[in-house]
Design a protein around this nucleic acid. Structure first.
Lengths: 328, 328
DNA sequence: TTGTAGGCGTTATCAA
DNA sequence: TTGATAACGCCTACAA
């Protein structure tokens, strides 16, 4: 690794001049500039970012913390974030946490060590007080998933309201026995709100709650099929399925068709997030579109505001519009 | 932001002692240690990584460059990489390039600026000579997609051989007219090798090549459906479909079923990569499983070797086993 | 056990 | 237009 000093030596100039050439930060006469450029070329010199950042204070790097890269739902959010980031000259990095606190802490340490200017949490594992504390000292923002009353800004939708609407849609189709199908963490806000709406809608209409279907499973598709079999064996008269994600809906539908049900006729299934899975599913099902691109943009914009204006600590809570749709 | 000096001042010790406490690097008497810890606590001190790294030379950060987070195929590779990285105490970051050279260059700049210890390229946009040059100065490795003869290590499978086997499977089922369905970049190695195998297999068996179906489209599923319609209108007697990815296969199948074909009976479709799409597809189709977890592990291991042993420049080319499977 | 001081590679200020 | 030089925050001989 060559340093600015070696370049200066070879070009017979001072390090200051080399720096000026590299950053185009001040006028340098044409022939000294050429000498410097030649030296840079010859030594294959590349400035060491740590030296630079040590002076500059900030790195212009922002990290997105997601559960795992394989959730198709994150793609649009990430693109929204990247759009705004790009416009403001921030570099975006992504880290997988797999819901593992230790991994998450490793990334958060990069923030605390001033290696990152900020973090966008798409799903986080920290508890309320750790999060709140982090927010009080560093620029962070939550998107989609968030911890309520954690004193930390978030951009999401009203999962409760959207779920109520889905439930009303199912009930309007005269289904009396409706099951709740969910896999994965049940303590994230989207899951708790969905379940709350599920219960409230049924209670309001005097319908039974079929709660024994909440389980923790890793592979969404397979466990959705398993849960469907389980529900049907315990409650053969169930005809409505409220699932918490599109992939689950696909699994439920497949299992129902296997059993000879005519989906959308005898039985009705809803998904969530409007991912590729709801586009390719035959038959189609009702799902919720979040405009996650916009969520990502807004969150990133907010994060940048915080980075540029660190004294402003007040948490912002924004719940954006969504739409119920059925693809094709 | 508080510095080591402020901590030293408050604790009435030297910065050296603070450093020793922070890094547990040498014996410090219990009560000075306590004083230092108190000061750290009070000032909410976190060491600045730039100062540290400036001394340490390397950052223990490795970047994975992928096309986009929404390709389900990358998930296993990333997990393989992360497993090995974790074991060797490297931090993994991910960057989306979207096939955009400028974005890719921004990330590569981080490598050149010594911010990163190495890069894993899952898909890259650089041309052969740039890549080769990069490899000669920095630790990089290619996984799955690679540029042949670029003097850069890669870990992948023999796409040509796998595709030949798929073609033989189609032909063995008595299909005489077989179309090639592909969207996205056609200059990546996986695409060229698949197409070469497609042609060679047909030639070998004296069957016609139906080439006019290669087009560039963004959304795999929709364009697969479009291409299928196009093929069928131009060549109504086509009964075999060799597609370059599982999502394309799903699109082709949907279109075929729409047209009243009995898939796996009248017509036969193959996919590639054994992603979630091949698991959920009904009917099922034949696809290729790459053991991408292992590919990721091997690539990362190689990268670490290079990071630790930078003089070793010889490129390693490894083509790993794969399996043809039909889910369920 | 603790402190002093030099250096990691860069940028920015001040003179020349 | 150019050059010395003092930071930036940290670590580590070396000394005490």
């Amino acid at each position: 690794m060559s340093t600015i000093e070696q370049v200066a030596l070879l070009a017979k100039v001072s390090v200051a001049t080399v720096s000026r050439v590299v950053n185009n930060s001040a006028k340098v006469s044409d022939d000294t500039k050429q000498r410097v450029l030649n030296a840079i070329e010859k030594l294959n010199y590349q400035p060491n970012a740590f030296g630079t950042f040590l002076r500059k204070i900030n790195s212009n790097m922002v990290l997105i913390l997601i559960h795992s890269v394989d959730n198709p739902f994150f793609s649009q959010i990430v693109q929204g974030i990247e759009k705004v980031a790009h416009e403001h000259d921030y570099n975006i990095l992504i880290g997988n946490t797999y819901g593992d606190l230790e991994r998450e802490q490793r990334y958060i340490k990069m923030l605390k060590n001033h290696l990152l200017d900020g973090i966008v949490l798409i799903s986080n594992t920290l508890d309320k007080s750790s999060l709140s504390q982090l927010h009080s000292s560093y620029p962070i923002v939550q998107v989609v998933e968030y911890i309520p009353d954690s004193n930390t800004s978030y951009f999401s939708i009203d999962f409760y309201k959207a779920s109520l609407e889905l439930m009303e849609a199912i009930i309007a189709r005269k289904h009396k026995k409706i099951a709740f199908i969910h896999t994965g963490s049940s303590c994230i806000i989207s899951a708790t709100e969905k379940f709350r709406a599920y219960q409230d809608a049924l209670t309001k209409h005097g319908l039974p709650i079929i709660t024994n279907t909440i389980e923790e499973h890793l592979f969404g598709y397979a466990s959705a099929r398993y849960l469907t079999r389980k529900v049907l064996s315990e409650h053969p008269d169930v005809t409505g399925f409220f699932t918490t994600s599109d992939l689950l809906a696909v699994g439920v539908i497949e299992e129902l068709r296997n059993k000879g049900f005519n989906v959308n006729q005898d039985v009705f299934v809803t998904g969530f997030d409007n991912t590729i899975f709801s586009s390719i599913s035959k038959p189609s099902f009702m799902t919720v579109d979040l405009d996650s691109f916009k969520l990502g943009m807004n969150a990133m914009q907010h994060l940048i505001d915080r980075i540029k204006n660190p004294e402003e600590k007040e948490a912002v809570a924004s719940l954006q519009e969504y739409t119920l749709i059925t693809n094709k």
